[in-house]
Design a protein around this nucleic acid. Structure first.
Length: 637
DNA sequence: AGGATGATGACCCATAAT
DNA sequence: ATTATGGGTCATCATCCT
């Protein structure tokens, strides 16, 4: 199996070298403000920029700052609009703060906002409508929003601005030969385009400014610090200022809880605490599992979040999507997050999407607005997913959701034992029998298939629960055991597809995918069901059975694109990756879930954490992603 | 030889109880 | 605030069976 790759997997990883480097890297990763043109002169060649860029004024810098502070684009845009494009930065910030406090005041109001945001309305308009009609009158707010949306239908120019449009044709060729568009809106596109270019420091900059940039802070941060603190303070003090601001920001972002707004002073206290030991490399910020475990929000669940700010290092192509079990040993997710540019993991339990639980963490840099669910949505309860079982389901079995689909399953003998426990009793069995049966049903994830008869899930039932087409893993002389193992190790397709759906408007002409630890192709099935054309899929999967399953899927669904399969991540040398990228024009998405054997709770023997023989391959994911990032950057130059 | 079966805890979190 | 309890988990291994 994958063991053969672990022998050499510890040397070419460059982040466990020495402590100083580690600390330095932490600081770099922590600097979450994106670099951006500071002086208007940097956009002085109109022929090489989009018209939007030419219009950049002082408000743009404020815009960037506020985005970094976690305020919504809509809110900021509105503030700038209200005060005029040349308004003083402090005025705009004040306005945004005012909006922000308005929207945060009172739980009923934020619930109203959440409600309408979940319906797909713009945050800006929702806030405005609530402001105009009062927070309690939901009907009036709804009507106002609907009529304003209808109005926009009649004004296509306005509407277009809000749509995620790929604008490859409009961009001058010096900028893009690639069809990646990271934008969700016009504002953000300019913002991100600047992010990916413009790395050199203006030689005329003041010394302190240059020092700060050399220390790893962005130019925006540096200029902001100089502006706020004046140029009389020392570089160290300026660095402290930026560092404190970063901590405060990351705190606010990390603990933004739509359910419960914490009082201001509470947050301030924590800020000071976390500031006390900023450089200690052992001070790992604890990753907390959310309850309910719905990540940034799910369809049909309240509390949808449509905006987050990612650390600047994460905001570089390609898109990446990493998955693993949520209930890993302590410290594992902190390590994973740290090695993936400090991106906060999105923890989702698939029981909020389908009829079976699946608690997983996802680290990715995908946009999180405009997500949608693939159709048809999966059956949501056991009784809907297993209609035939309804007849036999005893009233005292209160389960509505199944437990996680794993790689082992109940035996036929267990079914017999349960039957024998139940048969002597007519009607409802006594409490101790009920407890025994329920415990076994939960433990082995059994469903009722006859009178007094429970059974483990069949492979095709698992396929269904996990969002795969029927018979996806069937055929090729694959035994039942192997089939179940492959399925137990897979993605829940609807969950992953919901996250990947944000890519659909960005890649209308198709996508190039590097799929690591592909398994039975959960990512590929998700993209297929999203109808995102796969131009090239380079897949790495150790199991021959799984590779065959993916090949069969590729044939059966008549994919137009190219499927290239590798067996071992060790084959994906840096040169191989570079060659593949040059040949096929780079990768738009690097997706995969690395082995969980050594992390999973079910493992009683070798649950040794990320350093375990298999799970250590996580670092191969990191290595490969890093190569793709660097090669992408080189190819863009 | 390959598939099926049963025995094998530990860690983590949530909640209740103290 | 601290302790007790309960439930859940992309698993592994030796051994048995066909």
């Amino acid at each position: 199996m994958a063991k053969d790759s672990s022998s050499s997997g510890d040397d070419d990883i460059d982040w466990n070298t020495d402590d100083d480097l580690e600390v330095e890297k932490m600081i770099l990763l922590k600097s979450s403000v994106k670099p951006r043109a500071v002086t208007p002169t940097s956009s002085s060649s109109p022929t090489e920029t989009t018209p939007d860029l030419v219009q950049m004024g002082s408000s743009d810098q404020t815009f960037a700052t506020l985005v970094e502070m976690g305020y919504s684009m809509d809110m900021i845009a509105r503030a700038i609009k209200e005060n005029g494009p040349n308004a003083d930065a402090s005025v705009i910030i004040e306005t945004v703060l005012k909006y922000s406090s308005e929207s945060e005041a009172g739980s009923s109001k934020s619930k109203a906002i959440d409600y309408f945001l979940a319906m797909g309305f713009d945050e800006e308009k929702v806030i405005k409508a609530i402001h105009e009609h009062g927070e309690d009158n939901m009907e009036l707010i709804g009507n106002a929003l609907i009529s304003s949306a209808e109005e926009e239908e009649r004004l296509p120019t306005v509407k277009e601005e809000n749509l995620p449009v790929v604008k490859e044709g409009k961009l001058p060729e010096v900028k893009e030969e690639n069809d990646i568009d990271w934008s969700d809106s016009d504002e953000e596109m300019n913002y991100c385009d600047l992010l990916f270019s413009d790395d050199e420091i203006d030689p005329d900059s003041p010394d302190k400014f240059r020092s700060l940039v050399k220390m790893g802070f962005s130019k925006l941060e540096a200029s902001l610090a100089l502006e706020r603190c004046g140029d009389k303070v020392s570089v160290e003090e300026l660095a402290d200022f930026i560092w404190a601001a970063q901590l405060a920001r990351s705190f606010d972002e990390f603990h933004a809880d739509p359910e419960e707004k914490k009082p201001r002073h509470d947050a301030k206290k924590r800020r000071i605490d976390s500031r006390r030991k900023p450089s200690s490399s052992t001070a790992e910020e604890k990753v907390r599992l959310p309850n309910p475990m719905i990540g940034f929000g799910l369809p049909n669940e309240p509390g949808l979040i449509t905006h987050r700010s990612l650390p600047a290092t994460a905001l570089r192509p390609p898109f990446f999507y990493y998955e693993n079990v949520a209930l890993a040993p302590k410290g594992v997710w902190e390590t994973i997050s740290r090695h993936l540019f400090d991106v906060e993991p999105e923890f989702v339990d698939s029981k909020y999407i389908c009829a079976a639980a699946r608690k997983r963490g996802y680290v990715h840099n995908l946009p999180i607005n405009n997500r949608f669910q693939i159709q048809p949505p999966p059956k949501y309860t056991i009784s809907d997913a297993f209609p035939l079982s309804k007849k036999w389901w005893p009233t005292w079995d209160k389960r509505t959701k199944l437990n996680c689909v794993v790689t082992v399953y109940g035996s036929a003998k267990l079914t017999k034992r349960i039957r024998e426990a139940l048969e002597p009793h007519i009607g409802e069995p006594p409490a101790h029998v009920r407890k025994y049966v329920i415990d076994q049903c939960r433990r082995w994830n059994l469903v009722w298939v006859g009178p007094n008869k429970t059974a483990p899930l069949e492979p095709d039932e698992m396929e269904n629960l996990l969002g795969f087409p029927k018979n996806h893993t069937r055929g090729g002389g694959v035994s039942r055991t192997v089939r179940l193992k492959s399925l137990g190790n897979s993605f829940q397709v609807d969950t992953v597809a919901y996250h990947l759906s944000a890519l659909k408007p960005l890649f209308p002409n198709g996508i190039n995918v590097l799929s690591l630890f592909t398994g039975i192709g959960g990512a590929e099935v998700a993209l297929h069901r999203l109808q995102i054309p796969m131009k090239v899929v380079v897949s790495v999967e150790i199991s021959e059975v799984n590779r065959t399953i993916l090949k069969d899927f590729w044939k059966q669904t008549e994919q137009k694109g190219l499927l290239i399969e590798y067996a071992d991540v060790e084959e994906m040398t840096n040169d191989t990756i570079e060659d593949l990228m040059k040949k096929y024009g780079g990768f738009d998405l690097v997706i995969g879930g690395s082995p969980c054997n050594n992390l999973a709770g079910g493992n009683r023997v070798t649950r040794s954490g990320l350093d375990g023989d298999h799970s250590i391959l996580f670092f191969e994911y990191c290595r490969i992603l890093e190569v793709v990032r660097e090669t992408t950057a080189r190819m863009r130059r």
